Simulated assay, not measured.
Amino acid sequence: MRRNVDSENITFSDYMEKWLERKKKNVTYGTYRHYEAYSRNHIIPSLGKWQTNKVKDYHIAGFYRAFFLGSLYVS
Score class of each variant (00 low, 15 high):
A61V: 11
G70W: 07
V27I: 06
F12C: 08
Y32L: 11
H34T: 10
N9Y: 11
S71Y: 09
V74S: 00
H59K: 04
L72H: 02
R40S: 06
T31A: 10
Y73T: 02
I44M: 01
Q51P: 05
Y64C: 02
K56S: 07
G62T: 11
T28N: 15
Q51I: 12
R33A: 13
G62N: 14
K23Q: 12
E17N: 09
T52Q: 00
T11S: 15
M1F: 10
E8G: 08
G48L: 08
N4L: 13
A61W: 07
V55H: 09
W19L: 15
K24L: 08
Y38T: 12
S75Y: 02
Y38A: 05
A61P: 07
K25R: 15
F63K: 08
A66K: 04
V27M: 04
S71W: 07
R65F: 13
V5S: 11
I10H: 02
S39T: 12
Y32Q: 14
W19M: 10
R22D: 05
N26R: 14
S13L: 05
Q51A: 05
L69R: 13
I44P: 02
Y35D: 07
I10Y: 00
V27W: 01
N26I: 15
Y38R: 09
E17P: 03
E36C: 05
W19V: 14
Q51V: 11
R40H: 08
N9G: 07
R65T: 15
R40W: 07
V55W: 03
S75T: 10
Y38S: 00
M16H: 06
D6R: 14
P45I: 07
